[in-house]
Design a protein around this nucleic acid. Structure first.
Lengths: 333, 333
DNA sequence: ATAATTTATTTAAACGTTTATATAAACGCT
DNA sequence: AGCGTTTATATAAACGTTTAAATAAATTAT
């Protein structure tokens, strides 16, 4: 593979000149520049990443850390990120934490110590104050995604979970429902906690009692959706149910289908996340749609902006971007 | 951040000794080794990736190239890969080609020229002979995934698409169907071409005519599934339909549902890929399930093996791993 | 004509590793 | 004691860049 030295020799200039041509970091006479460019073309030169990084340049690599691969939401977020990064000549590492905060810490530390220019992270449940210490040294920009970190203030891009839920529950209340159950996510997970809060707020606003026994905490799996729907429907005689993520919604639907419970006549249902299948279940599911692709896109854009600002030493305040959800009304409520 | 020099100073040895302790590349007296290890511990040392790579070491980074993020199948494949890599201390870059062979070439060339130890690629439709030239220089191991490359022989991990389809169509024939339609993928895409071949073979085997007008080529989207199902059902009076991927199956179901066409009475349906929703559509969908996670896992394992073999200069023959599909019989046929 | 300034280019050090080669110490043998 | 071996460690070059400092050439001012 051709190196900068080969180019220098071919073009009869020093390696410094070649470097300056490549990076546009100093004026080089038109004639010389052309010689260099021609040599680069001829030898099919591409600068060596490792060398570049070692001598202190940006790597154009960012780290992406998520708890788990495996949901439509995550997939679309990643897609949004990937598109923005590709357009801007960046690459990314994808790492999963398995929802383990210790693993997250290790990965973040490693990435910062090494060569990433920035990090996008959907944090695992836990205390995130260790980020302060880790980023102190180099000040690697970090954008949090989907979940609000605990114990620190940072840039943050996520859906307006509270409002999305609030609107959904308002709709149910307006339709006359008084006993509305909710299947929330694991406590401590800010995204689903916020959805629970939206539920509570709506009930309060309309003067309905908040009955703790109608609030169930699932673990965002199909199975827990199935099981908790059973509990709520059989034991609590709810007339409406709000399920805060797509895997659990699917579990709900499966239970109701199995027991031949009529939707929405016997139980009105609203889910979260608009997967492709919400259209083809029977009846089509009313859902709170969060703009997954846009969340990824925005997070990547914000991170790239922060990286640029870091280079130019611009001061900035952390921002919280709340992307709006959309209540897609179909036939299930 | 601590460097190898700091460790050397702290432990009162040379940097060479430190390096040898780290890499176990030469005998070091127990006592000296301990001093070094203690110093590393104390200064929280982690070797610098860029420097390591620059001096010719393996990067422990592999490249993952796929046409597109956005299907359940791809997601599970990536998950399988990620798990294996994480267990083995490898990281990976994820890149998409948008099904453009030129983009693929650029990415592969870049990755090989730079620092990846190996590549896993689900190739875009097109001629892949350029791989020979690109990998000649360094011999970077490459494992192909899901699709058979055109024009070259390489390691390959994918589902037994032919057999999966063959079994599905046999089932339909045994149930008495004579006019069986198929919605295949874009011609040239080996995965769906193989599925089409399985269909043809089954018909031949049972002495049924292969009617070209019952074979439609979609583009693996929901919309094309919808549209082509309409064409086949309305114009061709088929009694059974086989759809070769999940997004198109979903489109099929949606069309049938909209027109209130009874499954399987009016049209028997078999899909491909077992997504979560195939259980909750009405009726639950019979599908050919391919082991996505295992495909990813196997590809990663094979690649790591190739990387090790390259280091130890072991000769090897390219392998083709066909993972078996499973016909999951539900109520749609 | 010479000095001062500006412009264009080169030299060499630095980044943090690996590793071939050199050196030093310890030991066993005559 | 002197020599050759073995064992343990150190020195220094190399990897391919960037960049501060040095140099050389061209221009302007005195």
């Amino acid at each position: 593979m051709a190196t900068i030295k080969d180019i220098a020799k071919e073009a009869n200039v020093s390696i410094a000149t070649v470097s300056h041509v490549i990076n546009n970091t100093r004026f080089v006479k038109e004639e010389t520049k052309n010689k260099v460019l021609r040599a680069m073309e001829k030898l099919n030169y591409f600068p060596n990443f490792a060398a570049r990084i070692l001598s202190g340049q940006n790597s154009n690599i960012i780290g992406l850390i998520i708890p788990d691969i495996g949901s439509y939401f995550v997939m679309m977020v990643v897609k949004g990120i990937e598109n923005v990064l590709q357009e801007n000549g960046y690459m990314f590492f994808l790492n999963t934490t398995d929802e383990k905060i210790e693993k997250e810490k290790k990965i973040v530390k490693f990435m910062c110590d090494q060569f990433v220019d920035g990090i996008i992270v959907a944090p695992a449940i836990g205390d995130h104050s260790f980020y302060n210490e880790i980023t102190k040294e180099k000040g690697t920009p970090i954008v949090f995604l989907d979940r609000k970190p605990f114990g620190i203030r940072r840039d943050l891009v996520l859906a307006d979970n509270f409002k999305g839920s609030y609107e959904a529950i308002c709709l149910l209340i307006k339709k006359g429902h008084k006993k509305i159950g909710i299947i929330s996510g694991p406590p401590g997970l800010t995204s689903t906690d916020e959805r629970l809060n939206g539920y509570i707020r709506a009930l309060n606003e309309y003067g309905l009692p908040v009955d703790d026994s109608l609030i169930k905490f699932g673990d965002n799996t199909f199975e827990s959706g199935y099981k908790l729907t059973e509990e709520l429907f059989e034991e609590k005689k709810i007339t409406a149910l709000y399920v805060v993520n797509d895997a659990m919604s699917l579990g709900s639907v499966q239970f109701l289908k199995k027991k031949a419970i009529k939707i929405p006549e016997q139980l009105a249902l609203i889910g979260f996340d608009d997967s492709m299948w919400s259209l083809i279940v029977d009846p089509p599911l009313t859902v709170v749609q969060q703009p997954a692709y846009e969340i990824g896109k925005k997070a990547a854009e914000l991170l790239l902006q922060r990286i640029r600002e870091k280079e130019s030493k611009t001061k900035y305040e952390y921002e919280e971007h709340r992307l709006q959800t959309k209540l897609i009304i179909r036939k299930s409520c």
